[in-house]
Design a protein around this nucleic acid. Sequence first.
DNA 1: GAGCCTATTGGGAACGTTCCCATTTTACTG
DNA 2: CAGTAAAATGGGAACGTTCCCAATAGGCTC
Lengths: 340, 340
Amino acid sequence: MPPASVRATLIEVAKLAGTSKTSVSRFFGPERERLTPSLQARIANAATTLGYQPNLMARGLKGGGSRLLGVLVADIRNPFSVAVVHGIEQAARAHGYSLIVCNTDNDPEREQQHLSLLKSYQVEGLIINAAGQPEAQLQALMHSGVPLVLLDREVHQLDVDVIGLDNALAIDMALDHLVQQGYRSLLYVSESPAHASTRQERLQRFNQQAESLGIKSQTLILGNSAPHFEALTVFTQHSASSPGAVLCANGNVTLAMTRSFQQLGIPLGPTGLMGIDELDWCELITPGITTLAQPTDDIGHAAVSCLLNQLNGSAPTSPVRYRHAPRLQVRGSTTLKPNL
Amino acid sequence: MPPASVRATLIEVAKLAGTSKTSVSRFFGPERERLTPSLQARIANAATTLGYQPNLMARGLKGGGSRLLGVLVADIRNPFSVAVVHGIEQAARAHGYSLIVCNTDNDPEREQQHLSLLKSYQVEGLIINAAGQPEAQLQALMHSGVPLVLLDREVHQLDVDVIGLDNALAIDMALDHLVQQGYRSLLYVSESPAHASTRQERLQRFNQQAESLGIKSQTLILGNSAPHFEALTVFTQHSASSPGAVLCANGNVTLAMTRSFQQLGIPLGPTGLMGIDELDWCELITPGITTLAQPTDDIGHAAVSCLLNQLNGSAPTSPVRYRHAPRLQVRGSTTLKPNL
DNA sequence: GAGCCTATTGGGAACGTTCCCATTTTACTG
DNA sequence: CAGTAAAATGGGAACGTTCCCAATAGGCTC
């Protein structure tokens, strides 16, 4: 028999099972075991007959918890973000939570809107990959008791858990690798670090480490219209005296730089190319692009467990800052002399 | 002044504004204009002071609509899916809707679970990129009045709107292009068409058209462990007599085939390679991979407007089957003689 | 077998809205 | 200026749950 076309309620199930709504409610909650086996059977029966499914809106209203987690992503089309969301989803589902995913397209205004929206839906926790610096709103959210976790990017003056890559380690690993491969001059390319702490951290670490290693280095900020061809051309011209490599701050940059290398006819290897973030196609560009892969699933899982810890009240007193180590994926683009 | 740390309710706003909850409710609904300007001002004032935000759970409960749309995606890591979700999100937001996005990872069981879940959240509409064939559940959903739209893949015995690519046209365009470029032998590669109508349609059309055009053709189904290297090698060996091209049924296949071409050392162009779905990196693989790009944003927008039409009761009597035309992106991988 | 404790069950209020309907106010007609 | 219609506002029930507490049933102890 097909379920009734109008949704059955707790009360109807109770009526059919010859019991009270309270018992039915218990049956679907964590107190099922308190019910007599025979009662349990009757309720189970009635529920299936009617095709009953709890109305989570009502539950959310009464205070039983919405079982929703809000996820705010700065750029949903970025494969890194998607991979992390995938991890978050896995972990959330394992704990009986669902996700409301909002995409801000890196627009602080949309971020604001989405934050109020998520609050309106009574999400039990929030995972935020910030586009702007919405301290005020987040602070308010925090004070109203909503667990918060920042993903990848920090927000000033906000003391909450942060999950992401160990940026310093990543840069160190990259420099290590490049120097070991014989590159003596480095160009670090990033998108504007203005609103993303991650970009700042990486950039800063790069400058600091390059200096302390005594390596010739420069940086290039990718603008929308920036004529970076010129900079790139100049950079590669010195390669005879000291071989150079380009380090890309993230996947987007790697894409842009790969394009530029091709358009300028710069061969990969003799001029090195390396990127943070692993992408499907990095192995396909001859001779392969070396990357630092982020453990995206781990990051997603970590974000959810931080949230759950906060929900259980078992959160540590001071915020956690969990930095994950990247995995170095060596390919041909950072091999100086392919023939040796 | 910071908003109160506990969420303000309609009643508190009403009290502060010296009016009734009904008026405040109206203020935040579509009947704002019915209120005296002075009353509107008082309410607006009180609301900002208290940092009031409607509780959408409560609204959803009472029947005012949850303002939620459910999106069920078969594979959230597929760039095509993400792009469509992006389009859906844009359109939904423009109409004041938010998204609960669920990922099934192509697992029919998870699909079932997610469907009940979405139902529980009282979503006002459902956009489904089916993993299995959940006719029963979807039928039930339909009968209970939830607007439904299928994305990309159809479900048997289910008469609802379907939005997706015009698969027949896509195959025709591909064949046209390949034949025009001089390829005389075609290999169509697809993932298992077992549970995805799209794959079936494309495959069938390919066979049908190849025959009616009198072209030598074969098909290859990509299994998990299938040793397709052999088939590919054999296929390319005849290329002297009649030049061959490989047509990939979707982005995943294009990725796999590109890998295989490289591992087998098959040059692109002399053996053609073309894929349905546009991907970031297709232009980067020398000499560029020809693709049929799907208008993902349009598809997303169309899905939302179908849903809204149904919600407004202005739906046409019989289900719409909206097929979008792909855009041909010609690149070097389908140029037989690069030197001419 | 009376008395008590515990395991099981049920009734009612509350959550924050929306919507129906009743009431008050305003504006207009003649 | 009474009379009436229309506009503006307010009161209360209802949505489907959960949770507190009361009530009942069952099993002990002495």
